[in-house]
Amino acid sequence: MNSITSQSVPHKAPAKKGNFWLRKGNKIAPYFFISPFFIIFGVFGLFPLLFSLYLSFHYWEPAAGLAAMEWVGLENYIFAFQDDWFQKSIYNTGVIALKSGIPQHALAIPLAFFIHTSFTRWRNTVIGVYFIPYITSTVAISLVFTTLFSRDFGMVNQVLTSLGNFTIADMKVLSWIFPVENIDWTRPEYTKDMISFVVFWRYVGWNTVLYLSALQTIPRDLYEAAIIDGANRYQQFRYVTLPMLKPMAFFAVTLTIIGNLQLFEEPFIITGGTGGIDQAGKTAAMHMYITAFVESDFGTASAISWILFMIIAGLTWLNHKVLGGSNH
């Protein structure tokens, strides 16, 4: 027996011996085993996606059944673009996204650097504390914050007014910086800030964890080389850490863009589902929900969701240009 046959036989042997179904099964089995994902994705992912695209070109009164769909072409898109409330909700979404998004990263990077360099034994505990808001239920968070920011009975106002009314020799010495009367946080000028604060508070820990994991991959010798070159701690951060964090920053900012533009739960619960006074806290996703389920105009709501998708895709592309492009 030469070497060639001895090598080829073991490969062919099972096929020859196996019956038809076993042979067929060997080919089908892999597809069978990966089919659950495709079936579930098809039913719960792809189909709704395509159906909503189809729906966005129709007028549909859903309670009347599927037969009631009526082709209207681009009318839903045109209506959405011209709708004052939609424009306002896009503006609100943008403002909240910036006000909550920028501080998230501006704080998360130095915080991750600080935790990375200053904690050894308690590091995981500290990270865990910052991460807790991220895994807590949004509903619980929003309820706690609405209680804290309650006008007459909230802790925030109690602290602020007690500082504002702090008196030394009959003079309210701090009244120029702190309020002396309860602030109504539901008023339109505060709504967006309040929502932004909750979103910021919630996701800063998540971003810190992302940046921390990136920090851990930066080789030590880069810092050692920097130290030999005489770099101080700030210079190490500025010229070693920040450039090395860029790929993670791209990833984290992308997640923030997507998450913030789809923001729904926090503003929905904080404003009681209405968007607040003057709709100051109504995000685009909330507007979409209200259009579909309150006004039962599913066609326009689908069009809004696709417009939102295009905006998100555009901004992600832009982010790629800014942060992701210079990676090579």
Binding site: W60, P62, A63, A64, G65, L66, G273, F293, S296, F298
Partner: peptide
């Protein structure tokens, strides 16, 4: 309350 009426809307929509 809200979930019920949303569910009924979708149930009527799809039959």
């Amino acid at each position: 309350y809200g979930d019920h009426h949303n569910a009924m809307t979708t149930a009527l929509a799809t039959g």
